[in-house]
Design a protein around this nucleic acid. Structure first.
Length: 276
DNA sequence: CTAGCTTCCTGATAGC
DNA sequence: TGCTATCAGGAAGCTA
C-alpha cells in the first residue's frame, strides 16, 4: 500500500507535528513489529527522547532524535502512522503508541504486521536496518541513462523485476514499475540485455518524473490525512496502467492486458508496449 | 553469481 | 448463508 510517494506524504505531514516533541511513554502492543533492539530495550531507549527531524530514504522513514540516535521505520504493505489526540478512537491492529508531551500520540497501525521499527543508537551502524544497501534516490542527479545501463544491461532478468531492486534505484514498487514501463513503452518482461540506449534514456527521465508527479498528486492536508487513515492509496485516478487490465489505453485505445512477471501482477498496453 | 520458490499476515473477493 | 481458495505485494530467506 504505501509506496515512496505515500511515504513522502507521511513524512511531510508528520514532521511538523513531531519536531520538538518529547516522548513521555512508549507502549509496545505487539513486539513483532520491533526489529531492533529487543522490545523492552527499544521502549526503554525511546522514552524521554525528543524528535528533531524526519527524513525519508527509499521507502524508509527516519526519525532524527535530539540525542543523535535515530528511529527507522519501514511501512511495508499496510503500515500506517498517525499523530492523534490521546482520546482518538484506537484502531484495530495498533501495535505501537508513543505518548507525546503535548497530549498527542504517535500511533503505528499495521493490519498485516510486515512493517518494522529499528532504534539505532549513535554507537551502532545502520546496516542493521539494511538501509545502507539502497541504491540511488529517484531524484538523485546521478540517476542518468548511463547509471541504469551500467548497472543493468548485463542482467538476464526482466526490466520490471530490476526496477524493484532497491539496490539500483530505491523506492520503486509494483504500482510505479507498471506506470514507468507504460510511459516508456517497454513491455514488462523485456530482458535488461535487450534494452537500447533510448530505453535507458527514457527510463532515467521517467523514473523521477513519475514519482514526482505521484508525490504531487498525493498532496493533502494533515486533517485529510488523519480523516482518511484507513484509505486505500491504490488505483488513484492519476495512475494510467496499474490495475487497468480490461480497460482501454488512453493513448491508442487497445485493451490493457495483465500478466505475471517475477510473481507480480503487471498491466501493460499490448500496442504501446510491444514485445521485442 | 543467479533463478525460483516460500515466508510473513489479514482482509477482500470469487466460486461453489 | 457459509465455507474454502486465491490474491494483494515488499523484502528477506532458502535451495539448487
Amino acid at each position: 500500500m504505501p509506496k515512496l510517494p505515500e511515504v513522502e506524504t507521511v513524512r511531510r505531514i508528520l514532521e511538523p507535528q513531531l519536531i520538538g516533541r518529547s516522548i513521555k511513554k512508549v507502549e509496545v502492543l505487539n513486539k513483532q513489529i520491533i526489529a531492533h533492539p529487543a522490545a523492552k530495550q527499544f521502549a526503554g531507549s525511546l522514552s524521554a527522547q525528543k524528535f528533531s527531524g524526519m527524513d525519508r530514504r527509499g521507502k524508509f522513514l527516519i526519525f532524527q532524535l535530539e540525542s543523535s540516535a535515530r528511529l527507522f521505520l519501514h511501512l511495508r504493505m499496510t503500515g500506517q502512522l498517525l499523530v492523534t489526540p490521546r482520546d482518538y478512537p484506537c484502531e484495530k491492529h495498533t501495535h505501537l503508541v508513543l505518548h507525546l508531551d503535548n497530549g498527542m500520540q504517535l500511533r503505528y497501525i499495521d493490519v498485516r504486521r510486515f512493517g518494522r521499527f529499528w532504534y539505532i543508537d549513535s554507537k551502532e551502524t545502520e546496516n542493521i536496518t539494511g538501509i545502507d544497501k539502497l541504491g540511488l534516490e529517484p531524484f538523485d542527479k546521478q540517476l542518468i541513462a548511463e547509471y541504469l545501463k551500467s548497472r543493468l544491461f548485463q542482467k538476464k532478468k526482466s526490466i520490471k523485476e530490476m526496477l524493484h531492486d532497491q539496490s539500483v534505484v530505491a523506492g520503486i514498487g509494483n504500482i510505479y514499475s507498471d506506470e514507468i514501463l507504460y510511459l516508456c513503452g517497454i513491455y514488462p518482461e523485456t530482458k535488461c540485455t535487450e534494452l537500447s540506449d533510448t530505453d535507458w534514456e527514457k527510463l532515467s527521465r521517467t523514473i523521477p518524473q513519475e514519482l514526482a508527479l505521484a508525490i504531487k498528486e498525493n498532496k493533502m492536508s494533515a486533517e485529510e490525512y488523519l480523516a482518511g487513515k484507513g484509505k486505500e492509496y491504490r488505483n488513484t485516478p492519476f495512475l494510467k496502467a496499474y490495475g487497468h487490465d480490461g480497460m482501454p489505453c488512453p493513448v491508442c485505445g487497445s485493451i490493457f492486458e495483465r500478466i505475471t512477471v517475477a510473481g507480480r501482477s503487471s498491466c501493460y498496453c499490448p500496442k504501446c508496449q510491444k514485445m521485442r
